[in-house]
Design a protein around this nucleic acid. Structure first.
Lengths: 235, 235
DNA sequence: TAGATTGTTAATCGATTAACAATC
DNA sequence: TAGATTGTTAATCGATTAACAATC
């Protein structure tokens, strides 16, 4: 009986899964059949036990001695993330960033397909960006209901974000990827995932500041160089 | 004596700081002098103790009974993040996403100014995007050294990412904000901050999947509705 | 003063790491 | 078989939450 149910466990592990998935799909294309946790760990600068634990989360079963079957591992990760059924999504706010996301083809490998975009600027409405049509925001509700869209990407200016979110929610969208810096208020049953760029920049900045102080060594084990092997005992 | 020095503590707290900072700057514009941790917490759907602990990290001193002085809190957060001195940065890869980042004006509030961009496409070189000039990648090294640029944004296609990173490192850039999905290899003294969009999408997807299962309730306390107050005892 | 709020110390909870057993 | 690798259980470490003391 957890005290706080407003909580999703294993966040860090979930965030690592897409990285494994990408590598696995590439291996699959090349015809590789099995892979060990240690091999995956080597590719992404992690220690093997992290990979094992993460993969176990998806329910995959490996074979001692040989590792995990690549195709079944891909299958398990995709199912765990809900990426086995691609969701259609609407994008709201076709500005700089929204346009860039419309042009990014990788999302289809991540269980999402952007099918249309919405904006209020008259010069944008009716046009296309990278082959996606831009509609007026007034049409969001009708189209979302008709096309049964439940996922949305929010890329409007921050001051318009709450209003746009309210319209998305009214349209039946209940999963929102929020690229604005606004602190949004949403009903309990709506999932809002904040993708705030300045958070990442804050981490980079402090790491750079700390590296300066300590002579340039403060760094997460992101490099292939740092490996799991114990340091050679003192000979 | 920590076992693993390749580690930066308080990651989650650092990522929340820019959000406080934004709200504080707005309050400052409006002339507000003091703010309590509880008030900030209310704005961003956190419990007050989290805010207190985060702010303490920056070394700020509050006054019991009144809260924190807004200007000094802004000052402390900026100094802690190293945002008091704006860093000049180069952007490498002026495609969809790179272009969008060039057009984003908010980074100057986050201690970073993009001063130029680099690409290899002949039709881009010599042009401008949102007022920033695009140079050929061949000029990166010379210009970075001359202008003493240490920070870079990497937005090239994934297959070119390692090559581009190597050039950036050779140019003396030692802090790299990596928007590509590539697992990059860098020298120990170079800080690489990965900003992988699919990680965020993975979290959104699993939260949506879990919400379906449990009747739409699995959600982090992102809403202003959930507040710190203890539930009213059973009357 | 009384009471709201900060600051500090302790307890809980979750994530990572380590040790080792199971297995092909 | 022997040994590499998975899977499981325990230990450590860090982040969050709770309790309470200090203070204006």
């Amino acid at each position: 009986m957890p005290r706080n149910v407003n909580h999703i466990a294993k966040l860090p592990a979930i965030q690592r899964l897409p990285n494994y998935l990408r590598a696995l799909k590439e291996m699959n294309r090349r015809g590789r059949e099995y892979v060990s946790a240690a091999h995956l760990a080597g590719l992404m600068g992690l220690v093997p036990i992290v990979v094992s634990k993460d993969l176990a989360l998806t329910g995959v079963q490996g074979k001692p001695r040989v590792g995990y079957a690549v195709p079944s591992l891909i299958e398990c990760i995709e199912r765990f993330l809900g990426w086995n059924n691609t969701r259609d999504a609407f994008l709201v706010g076709a500005g700089h960033l929204g346009g860039a996301l419309l042009g990014y083809s990788g999302f289809e490998d991540n269980g999402m397909r952007i099918v249309a975009a919405f904006d209020v600027a008259p010069e944008k409405v009716g046009s296309e960006i990278y082959g996606k049509k831009i509609f007026h925001l007034d049409r969001l509700r009708e189209m979302a209901k008709r096309m049964k869209i439940h996922m949305g990407i929010l890329t409007v200016p921050a001051r318009m974000a709450q209003e746009a979110l309210d319209q998305m929610v009214a349209a039946g969208i209940w999963g929102i990827w929020n690229f604005t810096a606004a602190n949004l208020d949403a009903p309990e049953n709506v999932v809002v995932q904040n993708q705030d760029l300045s958070a990442g920049l804050a981490v980079l900045s402090t790491r750079m500041k700390d590296a300066r102080k300590s002579g340039g060594a403060t760094k997460r084990p992101s490099s292939r160089r740092l490996r799991a092997k114990k340091p050679p005992a003192e000979k």
